[in-house]
Design a protein around this nucleic acid. Structure first.
Length: 455
RNA sequence: CGGGGCUUGGCGCAGUCUGGUAGCGCACCUGGUUUGGGACCAGGGGGUCGCAGGUUCGAGUCCUGCAGCCCCGACCA
């Protein structure tokens, strides 16, 4: 009964194994809630199966990233999870990477590895297929599972060993145009995180051997964040520039970027307290905890030189391309969003990444009036393109309310015998707890857009 | 990888010190009563007690080895 684009579900047909009690291994709130809400199950240290509800949230985040990458001109592709060790030997990282890299030998005795990142592979693809500056610039990305054999995986999906990441790579003829590529991604990241309902702050990051000012981490603020961040409070309230501001003529992106980078913002590893005190007025100094959800950096000719990714310039001479890489931790974001948005009763999903928009509760399945009104609401919302999770189980009211609060869908629509009588629906805003009793049409109108507080 | 802890039914736990053939709550099944914030009564199903050795008439319990998982630290998207 739902439209093709809607992914509405009846709970009686769904797979949503919720838990009343928290499994003992989960310590932080997002991990606890993801287990209790039936989003993931752990299969081994740092490895998780994504159950239907968790997968839906993951896919929504993925879609936002994909759309914003497209707007910024990046092109999607897909590279394999396993890579040949040969290209890593070429770049010199096979030896350097250490035990974090999972090394595998196939039946022929060839050395493979489960990719922790893809600079080598993309560089190989690039050099084999692009030979002229006329084909530049290019920005290629993929969204793929990675593996890093962390010494100590923890925090659920926030620091698993296997993780879903969007990683993109830009290729430019010189540093100036590479800088433009970097700026575009900087802005695309701000927009992506804002769409997910997050306040993400770009902080200066270590540029390593390359130097320069082109490396930023994007941090979302959450009390349980892994690192401490120090910033000027104004950076938190800067408006995020719209995509329309970014045509192909991007010569003047620098001022936009500077509107962010002019403020002091650093995580603990780069923090300089003397500089902080000097640059930020006391009443604007913010110290908080955050979770890194993205990292962009320019690495120049590091891989292109080592791996001979050369293109002919206008003068006919070969030069190594200038590259940058741009990562977003997609699976980590699921945990990060929950860290940033929950309460004592459960998750509070921002509209854009909620697994379903509306949780519909039938207080009395089998009651003719309730069933009919629920069916009408379910069908209409679904046909309007909304994702509805319909609790049609034969459970007590309290159990349904608790489950719905736990999984945290932005809107709850409750229909019981009382309301069915008058064709009325009780609507609850999950974030604020605010309730309204509305006639069917008014309820449909309200449920069709985000609750204000979730925007 | 250093330090600490844990492993008993799907989940949370007791039982281990002091050896005697496994228990509680939740969940699940059946029947009944309930029915707007995780109900109640009665009955029921489900566990080679992480694995492998050993001691013993007898091991969840004692000994040895191994594995898995969690926490703190160092490291990281």
């Amino acid at each position: 009964m739902s439209s093709p684009q809607s992914q509405s579900q009846r709970m009686s047909n769904y797979f949503l194994p919720t838990l009343k009690e928290t499994p003992s291994e989960a310590q932080i709130v997002s991990h606890r809630l993801m287990l209790r809400a039936g989003m993931v199950r752990q299969s081994a240290a740092g490895l998780y199966s994504w159950l239907p509800l968790g997968l839906k949230a993951l896919r929504k985040i993925e879609t936002i990233v994909r759309e914003e990458q497209a707007k910024a001109g990046a092109i999607e592709m897909l590279m394999p999870t396993l890579q040949s060790a040969d290209i890593w030997r070429e770049s010199g990282r096979y030896e350097d990477y250490g035990k974090e890299m999972l090394r595998i030998t196939d039946r022929h005795g060839r050395d493979l590895l489960y990719g922790p990142t893809n600079e080598e592979l993309i560089t190989q693809i690039f050099r084999d297929n692009v030979v002229s500056y006329k084909d530049l610039p290019k920005n290629l990305y993929h969204i793929q599972w990675k593996f890093r054999d962390e010494i100590r995986p923890r925090f659920g999906v926030m620091r698993g060993r296997e993780f879903l990441m969007k990683d993109g790579y830009s290729f430019d003829i010189d540093e100036a145009s590479a800088r433009t590529a970097y700026y575009k991604m900087f802005l695309a990241y701000l927009r992506s995180f804002r769409r997910m309902g997050l306040k993400a702050m770009p902080v200066a990051a270590d540029t390593g051997p390359i130097g320069g000012d082109l490396s930023h981490e994007f941090i979302i603020l959450a009390e349980t964040g892994e690192s401490e961040v120090f910033c000027h409070s104004d950076i938190l309230d800067l408006p995020v520039p719209e995509a329309e501001l970014m045509g192909d003529d991007t010569g003047d992106l620098a001022p936009l970027i500077e509107s962010f980078t002019q403020y002091y913002a650093r995580s603990d590893e780069m923090h300089d307290s003397a500089m902080f005190e000097a640059q930020v007025p006391a009443d604007k100094q913010v110290t908080a905890r955050g979770i890194e959800v993205g990292h962009i950096f320019y690495f120049g000719q590091k891989y292109s030189t080592a791996m001979k990714a050369l293109v002919a310039g206008p003068d006919g001479k070969d030069t190594a391309v200038h590259s940058g890489s741009y990562g977003i931790g997609i699976s980590r974001l699921v945990g990060g969003i929950i860290e940033a948005s929950h309460d004592d009763d459960g998750i509070v999903w921002p509209w854009a990444v909620a697994p379903f928009h509306v949780g519909l509760i039938n207080l009395k399945p089998g009651h003719e009036g309730c069933d009919a009104l629920c069916a009408r609401l379910f069908d209409t919302l679904s046909q309007n393109g909304l994702d509805v999770l319909y609790d049609d189980r034969d459970e007590r009211a309290g159990a349904k309310f608790s489950t719905m609060d736990l999984i945290g869908l932005p809107w709850q629509a409750v229909i019981g015998p009382r309301g069915a009588e008058g064709q009325e629906v009780e609507i609850k805003n999950r974030a604020t707890g605010e309730k309204h009793v509305l006639a069917l049409d008014a309820a449909i109108a309200l449920l069709s857009s985000p609750p204000e507080s979730a925007q």
